[in-house]
């Protein structure tokens, strides 16, 4: 055939050289706008606390919280690591369990019919109400807490991966059949790549949920538990009416959640930016 009549594909120049003034302004605004809001809120908060002389055991000002964060860092940091470890273990187990079960379901409709209702039951039962039972029956507290967090994190991975595995293009499936592809080839070359964006979507949800699950489980475990996670520190600070430390702990938890979200967002972009609509920059 002759040379292509159509124009060659638009190559994708480096972001720096293609960033038009308008695009740069937009990016600047995206960073600046939240910062302006933060300054207004934090400044207003500090002003109110100082003007009304609110006692620190009722509402500490941001400056006091910052000082507390620095001073109790030797206590909070190891606790944060423990909470992150619980969340990470739960998420890893959720990935293995969720993807594994989704694969089993895609292999056999009967497995799906038999098991999926129980996955739903597990999902809709509030973890706060199951956690005390788990803590009774599972001796090893860390295992029990991870189990609680796993229950919360695993369902979005399962349901998203199942949806993804079932979403392969019908014509492509026909093509694989035409060339006599084995089940393993279909899975590896067609179903798994199709499921990847769905899985990554589930992972972003599950990442945040695993942290929430870890915090809830730590709260329930309380003093009977490991006693060193960040959620426990917040609880402990409450008992001691150390309100600034409660805020410091919450701040750390929130930042951790944001970090997890950004991490998986970056992972998703890294894996999808060459081909998937969700990650491809639109040319205008």
């Amino acid at each position: 055939m002759a040379r292509a009549l159509e124009s060659p594909p638009a190559s994708l120049p480096a972001p720096a050289e293609r960033a038009e003034p308008a695009a740069r302004e937009d990016r600047l605004a995206r960073i600046l706008a939240p910062i302006v809001i933060a300054i207004l809120v934090v400044g207003g908060w500090e002003a109110i606390v100082r003007v009304h002389e609110i006692p620190h055991y009722i509402l500490p000002g941001p400056s006091l919280i910052a000082r507390e964060l620095v001073e109790s860092w030797p206590v909070l940091w190891p606790s944060l690591l423990i909470t992150v470890k619980i969340a990470a273990l739960a998420l890893a187990a959720a990935i293995v369990g969720g993807v594994g079960l989704a694969l089993l379901c895609s292999l056999s409709r009967w497995i799906e019919i038999a098991l999926f209702p129980y996955a739903v039951v597990l999902q809709v039962t509030p973890v706060v109400s199951i956690a005390p039972l788990i803590l009774i029956y599972v001796d090893h507290t860390l295992t029990a807490v991870v189990l609680c967090a796993w229950i919360v994190a695993f369902f979005p991975i399962l349901s998203n991966t199942m949806l993804g595995l079932a979403s392969a293009d019908h014509n492509l499936r026909d093509l694989f059949e035409l060339y006599g592809a084995s089940r393993w080839q279909q899975l590896r070359l067609l179903r798994l790549p199709t499921a990847l964006p769905y899985f990554l979507g589930g992972l972003r949800i599950a990442g945040g949920l695993s942290l929430i699950g870890a915090v809830v489980a730590e709260y329930v475990a309380g003093t009977a538990g490991t006693g060193t996670g960040l959620a426990f520190r917040v609880l402990e600070a409450q008992y001691r009416l150390n309100i600034p430390r409660m805020f410091a702990g919450l701040l750390l938890l929130a930042l951790t959640g944001v970090a997890i979200y950004l991490l998986f967002g970056a992972l998703s972009h890294l894996l999808l930016h060459r081909w998937h609509e969700s990650a491809v920059r639109r040319e205008r």
């Binding site: 293009d169 014509n171 492509l172 026909d174 093509l175 694989f176 035409l178 060339y179 006599g180 592809a181 080839q185 070359l189 067609l190 790549p193 990847l196 060459r274 081909w275 998937h276």
Partner: peptide
């Protein structure tokens, strides 16, 4: 591979390069 099939839509794998898409029938063999 004695039969080639062309669909109404290009039906390419979006995650694979042009090379990998064209390689597919051979790869499956």
């Amino acid at each position: 591979g004695a039969v080639g099939f062309v669909f109404q839509e290009p039906t390419l794998m979006p995650w694979a390069t042009v090379f990998d898409n064209v390689w597919l029938p051979l790869r499956l063999q």
